[in-house]
């Protein structure tokens, strides 16, 4: 039987093309990072001439990216699975506040961590139930949760800042292992676990299937509702972890913490190549997206520029990054047409 006359190297070429698409995007993000550092060197040559400052500054950037990075991993799963989670910042606040009440603190570090994780998962489960069984649109359900969870956090904390008196929790932000801050280790661990979960497990395969074509997934025997529920719980879990990280950084928690984290996490995921309509995305890309944002923040901090300007630049970067991606993708396919 004759087959389509495709040259023998066709399969390899296809694989490579797909690889290239992701690698190129990530390389582009690395390029942006390098560019930002170059801008830093040009604007503050005196600082960059000190090697210890440079090293510490990089670690600061990573440390500042750590909590939002963890949130972005969860967000990436939710978006690939065809949803969105607007309540992440609010979940962090609620988990952080709940974990730092005097009552919780009396159980020690274990009690605080346990509380933060359980609160995160529980709120995520509520989101998930509303969305998959209550059939609410994810945008609406998590928007409502955003308002409600922050409200509850303010209620619990009586709008006060709750100081963490727990040495172990506080030391997470100050201690280092092999010269690298513990928070950064946590980020790397979560990213690595997220990568494995997405690319090597049945859970990840289901996530892509559910986001790519829910009806096809359902008719293939995948329990779409349960999986959607689990995705929001996963996002909640990441928020719980982030709550502990932020609490240790500030040695306190309050109802207004992690403000607008949902926007940063969504933006980082999208810049990293996650399709907002679901079915496609990468964890590594999302990490780069987060790093780009925290490098910008750092650049503005060392130049003593206001956060207002910073936000305007962030907005511009999001638009630019997506534009570049589309352009690059097109030119790439054009290239292969020849």
């Amino acid at each position: 039987m004759t087959t389509q006359t495709a040259p023998p190297e066709a399969p390899a070429k296809q694989e490579r093309r797909k690889l290239d698409e992701n690698t190129l995007r990530n390389l582009g993000l690395v390029g942006v990072l390098v560019l930002l550092i170059v801008v830093g060197i040009i604007t503050k040559p005196d600082l960059y001439s000190d090697p210890t400052w440079v090293k510490n500054n990089f670690l600061t950037i990573l440390q500042q990216a750590s909590a939002i990075g963890v949130v972005t991993v969860g967000m990436t799963f939710v978006i690939i699975g065809g949803g969105i989670d607007l309540s992440v910042g609010a979940i962090i606040a609620l988990a952080g506040v709940w974990a730092t009440t005097l009552a919780t603190q009396s159980y020690g570090a274990g009690g605080m961590i346990f509380t933060a994780l359980v609160v995160g998962i529980a709120v995520g489960l509520v989101n998930g139930v509303l969305i998959s069984y209550g059939k609410l649109v994810p945008f609406i359900a998590t928007l409502a949760m955003l308002v409600a969870a922050r409200g509850l956090a303010a209620q619990i904390s009586a709008k006060q800042t709750q100081v963490s008196a727990n040495d172990f929790i506080n030391s997470l932000a100050s201690e280092r292992l092999l010269g690298i801050p513990l928070l950064v280790w946590i980020l790397f661990l979560v990213v690595a676990a997220g990568w494995v979960l997405l690319n090597r497990t049945t859970f990840g395969r289901r996530t892509v299937a559910v986001g790519g074509n829910p009806e096809a997934a359902r008719l293939a025997g995948i329990n779409v509702k349960r999986h959607t529920l689990l995705l929001y719980a996963l996002s909640g879990l990441c928020c719980g972890i982030a709550a502990i990280m932020l609490t240790s950084q500030a040695t306190s928690a309050q109802a207004a913490m992690a403000n607008l984290y949902e926007l940063d996490a969504i933006a980082a995921a999208i810049i990293g190549g996650t399709l907002l309509s679901g079915g496609r995305g990468t964890i590594v890309g999302a990490l780069f997206g987060v790093l780009v944002f925290s490098t910008i923040t750092n650049l503005f901090a060392i130049n003593n520029l206001s956060t207002e300007v910073q936000n305007m630049v962030k907005g511009a970067i999001i638009v630019l990054a997506v534009l570049i991606q589309q352009f690059r993708y097109k030119s790439l396919t054009q290239l292969f047409k020849r």
Partner: peptide, 17 residues
């Protein structure tokens, strides 16, 4: 609309179930 993940490779569509 009922069976395919259009962006995914053939083999992942084949093993979806």
């Amino acid at each position: 609309s009922q069976a395919l993940l259009l962006d995914e490779p053939v083999y992942k569509n084949m093993t979806l179930a």
